[in-house]
């Protein structure tokens, strides 16, 4: 990454723009330095965050014993899991109709409707669903969160599955039927395994989007259900603290553990095209 300094042969390469490499390196520093600083300071034993005193894991222990945090984690995991399962099932069913159904009318309209949450500013959605819940008198915080999250997760689950189905030739399903597989068996044995990477990607995306959501959760929450980002936000508003650094670091570590294998799988699947 340091070869932006070397001139030499590149000076004559018309495709090489001097300075772009420097901007690239500075950009990655900008992108990662804040996170790295935060991680570093999570190991600072000093209660005053910005003054380094010595290495310590004590903030991690106190974070893990924090009941508020643990209950927020439980809420977030519950909401994300249920919303992901629901959104993915709804998305699979819609994607199958839109790319395999015969004589589907208004396919364009249907896709627009499914992708609505991507087009609206989230704050507008959050406000709208808040008013709906209050009008209907929905009190249960967990239920409110699950319903709202399922709704905005649907397009994130839908798009990868739809893309996978469109990239896949209908030949495979026809070949299965030609070889005496009834439609349901052809779906189970051929279509489903072949679109699995898409389903996996969609579910993964939904899960992360749900876990990470702040705007909607912050407005809808209450009724005894606070999600992790909302909880962290409330801590941030109280000010910088070493425990907060530790919590943030844990969240980053878990995100990395979840995302990296998915990314590796996606990379491998890209080569094994259909």
């Amino acid at each position: 990454m340091l070869n932006f300094l070397s001139g030499g042969a590149k000076r004559h390469d018309a495709k090489h723009y001097p300075g772009f490499g420097l901007i690239g390196v500075l950009f990655f520093i900008f992108l990662y330095l804040p996170i790295l600083v935060m991680i570093a300071y999570s190991f600072n034993s000093n209660k005053i965050v910005s003054v380094w005193q010595g290495f310590s894991l004590k903030w991690y222990f106190s974070a893990l014993q924090n009941d508020g945090l643990m209950s927020a984690v439980r809420v977030s995991l519950t909401v994300a899991t249920v919303a992901t399962v629901l959104a993915t099932l709804i998305a699979i069913s819609a994607a199958l109709v839109l790319s395999r159904g015969k004589d589907v009318k208004g396919a364009k309209l249907s896709e627009t409707v499914i992708n609505l949450p991507l087009m609206l500013p989230e704050i507008v959605f959050a406000v709208a669903i808040l008013i709906l819940f209050s009008q209907l008198g929905v009190q249960n915080g967990l239920l409110k969160l699950i319903l709202a999250h399922t709704c905005f997760c649907i397009p994130f689950a839908f798009l990868p599955i739809r893309a996978r189905l469109q990239g896949m030739h209908t030949n495979f399903e026809q070949a299965a039927q030609d070889l005496y597989a009834p439609p349901w068996v052809a779906f189970k044995r051929i279509t489903l395994p072949l679109i699995m990477p898409g389903i996996f990607a969609g579910a993964m995306l939904s899960f992360v989007i749900s876990m990470d959501d702040f705007i909607t959760s912050n407005i809808v929450s209450g009724g005894g259900a606070t999600t992790l980002p909302v909880y962290i936000f409330s801590l941030v508003k109280q000010g910088v603290s070493p425990e907060l650094n530790a919590i943030s670091t844990l969240i980053i570590a878990i995100s990395l553990l979840l995302v990296t294998p998915c990314w590796l799988i996606a990379e491998r699947n890209r080569d094994a095209s259909l």
């Binding site: 030739h169 030949n171 070949a175 299965a176 597989a181 009834p182 439609p183 395994p193």
Partner: peptide
């Protein structure tokens, strides 16, 4: 339906199940 006909097809691009 296709899955009940005792005929089989060799598809243009073979359609071998990749998995």
């Amino acid at each position: 339906p296709a899955h009940k006909r005792r005929v089989n097809t060799v598809f243009q691009n073979y359609a071998l199940f990749p998995h």
